[in-house]
Amino acid sequence: MIRLQNIEKVYRTDTIETLALNSISLDVAKGEFLSIMGPSGCGKSTLLNIMGLLDTPSKGDIKISDQKTDHLSDKQLAQFRNQKLGFIFQSYHLINDLQVLDNVELPLLYRNTTAKERKMLATEALEKVGLSNRIKHFPTQLSGGQRQRVAIARAIVGRPEIILADEPTGNLDSAMGNEIMDILINLNRNEGTTIIMVTHDENMAHKTHRLVRLFDGSQVQ
């Protein structure tokens, strides 16, 4: 599903060069639930961003669904992300000015869909995360766990093949964290969605199919 070959990421300033990722090669199979662990600053999020085409590597190749992505224009990249990828962030990144339903509809705005279809799909996604009774609420009226469930609904509403989750339980207590983890596991199991999750939590990581460990930008496991 995702193939990374010799990925390097170097951050350059006028005076200093930092090697964030050093020759990472990784294959993620279709339907796999992979977790990435490592200490802070080891390059986990950078790797996830590169897999999600939110960032570009300094060197190396990425293939997603057998398609090379390095030659895609801004518009094509946007379309590719919209069709294939869904994102879940540690700090939710919901738009506070929009109601829950509008937040969940967001990825569908960039597709050819009618307002009616968008509403139907978004309601369906919210039902899956158990929040169909909160569609008219604003994000600020929800708890942390509820907000992350809205973020998951937004990530799955477009039925992407891959979900990239950057510490999705990082801001939640263990009970809420477990709830979110259960939703992701069910998604992976029932819908066959490929999930790559960055986490600091060993317990969460052990619930996934495979664990990749990074240290100082290199893969150690």
Partner: peptide
């Protein structure tokens, strides 16, 4: 900018 990031991540192009 956070909203811009989210919109881009979920498929908005610069033109959009």
């Amino acid at each position: 900018s956070s909203e811009i990031g989210v919109r881009k991540a979920f498929g908005a192009s610069s033109g959009t």
